[in-house]
Amino acid sequence: MMSAKQADRLATAGLYAVAGVILALLAGLLGYVFVKGFPMLSWQFITSPPQIFKGGGGVGPQLFNSFYLLVLTLVFSLPVALGAGIYLAEYAKDNWLTRSIRISVEVLSSLPSIVVGLFGFLFFVIYMGWGFSIISGALALSVFNLPLLVRVVEQSIQSVPRTQREAGWALGFSKWETITNIVLPAALPGLITGIILAAGRVFGEAAALIYTAGMSTPALDFTDWNPLSPVSPLNPFRPAETMAVHIWKINGEGIMPDASAISDGAAALLILSILLFNLSARFVGRFVFKKMSAS
């Protein structure tokens, strides 16, 4: 038999080893992507459109599409997720309706993204007649992201201690005032984390977008910001290939001579974008928290 002290040492060493493996894996993956991709990154690569037959193309429209799609997806899914999360955490009674909502959310969150993509294709692209477009893609991704967001919202609201709510009620706040002025600010760090997780999924998602946002981008005029113009980047009814879809496509069927270099560069850029979004979301979160809680 081992003594308690030996067992403790062994467990500690084991946990350190596991942590080390995870760290090494992450560092290796990121390092590989960055080492291969960084040499490709240049202003020209980030801003210019891709070339189909010759080398030297960029991923400018794809980068823009990724961010635009993310923003639209959050615009659609965040209000719904906030509403549903607040309802489940604060208002829902423990009955069959609540339980079935929770089960649906759980089932939806394990739905494969390709299934969501095909649903989006049938419903938004064909039935609604929006074709391969940003709006179809954003709505499909909203369906894909809602379960995750709802759960994150619900959990971060539930993690605010009851004493905080009682303190609000005792000051004469109504239930709604307590939620908006005390619970939501206190839950904000958790909400930001959830939004970042959802954003990472949107940036990285390819399967659900192939059938909805499409695999091409029309020639865009980045000086035309009228959302109704067909060449405007903001037009939500144009097809929009994102970074992740682009990487997938050129690895499969890219016929430009520098296809693999471009996909390396795009991968590094994608990771950098996620990092950038992550940091700015935290920054915005701090700012919003100050606004919500201070004079």
Binding site: T163, Q164, A167, A170, L171, N181, I182, A186, S293, S295
Partner: peptide
């Protein structure tokens, strides 16, 4: 209450919160 439950805000805002709302 028995346990102090300050809001996660500044000292000033904790006091000002009720009147402000």
């Amino acid at each position: 209450f028995q346990h102090a439950s300050p809001f996660p805000f500044s000292i000033y805002d904790n006091v000002a919160y009720g009147p402000r709302i």
